[in-house]
């Protein structure tokens, strides 16, 4: 199975990189952007064949390594 993990900064955590990207979009003349928050995406190839087992395994990976849960949230999408 495959898993896609998206890691984003928690609400309220300052994101200077997102702010710089927002400023750059504005300087390129792209208006209408009210805010930018940047993050990370991980694509994992898994041995698991069962969705709930895959989700449980990836949740552990997120808690132990992929995300810093002091400042980051994560979401997991599982697919075949």
């Amino acid at each position: 199975m495959k898993a896609r993990v998206t890691v984003t900064l928690k609400a309220g955590v300052l994101d200077p990189q997102g702010q710089a990207i927002e400023g750059s979009l504005k300087s390129l003349g792209m208006s209408g952007v009210g805010g930018v928050r940047q993050g990370k995406v991980f694509d994992l190839l898994l041995d698991a064949t069962d969705e709930s087992a895959a989700r449980a395994a990836v949740t552990t990976m997120c808690e132990k390594l992929l995300a810093n849960t002091v400042i980051e949230n994560y979401t997991i999408e599982i697919s075949n």
């Binding site: 955590v13 300052l14 200077p16 990189q17 002091v70 400042i71």
Partner: peptide
């Protein structure tokens, strides 16, 4: 901090 021996997080400098 990443090992959990101290609390909090160290983020990118405000100035980038």
């Amino acid at each position: 901090i990443e090992a959990g021996l101290l609390p909090g997080a160290l983020m990118r400098n405000m100035s980038l």
